[in-house]
């Protein structure tokens, strides 16, 4: 009873705070100065039509690097928690049937058709991150969704964990090296102007941003695939 009262008090007080926020909110009429300079600088100085990708991979590139490190840490900790010492499924499976039901025809045929399309779509999203909506994180998540579909359709499918870990490490190391190259030949860490900017809006343009997108996409896709694989019973 006391607990329920406490819950209600907490929810109502949070609700009051949020209500005051919602009442006091007014829509912005103009961009704030920082946002305005980003919108001006990303196309002009970095040559990337997509302002958000420019911010993510160059102005806040260090933050993105930290985020990739967090993803790596999560893959490692999920492996640690679910890996060693976990009771084998044969012991704990008295309440489920011995032989898991095989995936249906629909799932299997759907996977055969969709997995190649998902891979192409992921490559498209990753490579067009500097031109339109997309980028490394989104494309990596799409790759992982393809791997999840494979795991559902083929329960025996065994992703090569060593290969995934090695690819991921190489992509991460190249990302950091690209950042250091920016420190040496361009304006600073993760500066994209280590490569020629090219023509604005062309496929190969915006300096190192497409390269960084690819590295990020490969890394995120591999990490999410490893996490998915670790969750398999």
């Amino acid at each position: 009873m006391i607990r329920r009262l406490f819950t209600i008090v907490a929810i109502v007080s949070f609700g009051l705070v949020f209500a005051s926020l919602a009442i006091g909110y007014t829509e912005q009429q103009f961009l704030r100065p920082l946002a305005e300079s980003y919108v001006r600088l990303v196309p002009q100085a970095l040559g990337a039509p997509n302002v958000i990708t420019g911010i993510l991979l160059t102005y806040r590139g260090f933050d993105t690097l930290g985020e990739v490190a967090v993803l790596f840490m999560v893959a490692a900790s999920v492996g640690l928690v679910l890996g060693a010492g976990r009771s084998p499924p044969s012991v704990s499976s008295e309440d489920r049937p011995e032989e898991a039901r095989p995936p249906s025809e629909i799932v299997r045929s759907g996977a055969e058709i969709l997995v190649p399309l998902i891979s192409i779509f992921a490559a498209y999203i990753i490579m067009n991150g500097h031109l339109s909506a997309g980028g490394g994180f989104q494309g990596g998540a799409v790759i992982a969704s393809g791997v999840l579909l494979m795991l559902l359709a083929y329960p025996q499918f065994q992703p090569n964990l060593e290969f995934l870990s090695a690819t991921e490490s190489v992509a991460g190391a190249l990302f950091v090296l690209a950042g250091i190259a920016g420190l040496i030949v361009a304006g600073g860490f993760l500066d994209n102007r280590i490569l020629p900017l090219g023509q604005f809006g062309a496929f190969f343009s915006a300096g190192a941003i497409p390269l960084l997108s690819v590295l990020l996409g490969v890394k995120v896709g591999c990490e999410l695939s490893v996490i998915l694989e670790k969750f398999r019973p």
Partner: peptide, 29 residues
């Protein structure tokens, strides 16, 4: 500069979504 929304919250949310997914994965583990 006169017709776009603020890009900074969008860029921050891309980061936050990934971190949220990571936290959920650890909680599920």
């Amino acid at each position: 500069t006169s017709r776009v929304v603020d890009p900074i919250p969008s860029a921050l949310v891309v980061t936050a979504i990934v971190i949220g997914m990571a936290v959920t994965a650890v909680m599920l583990a």
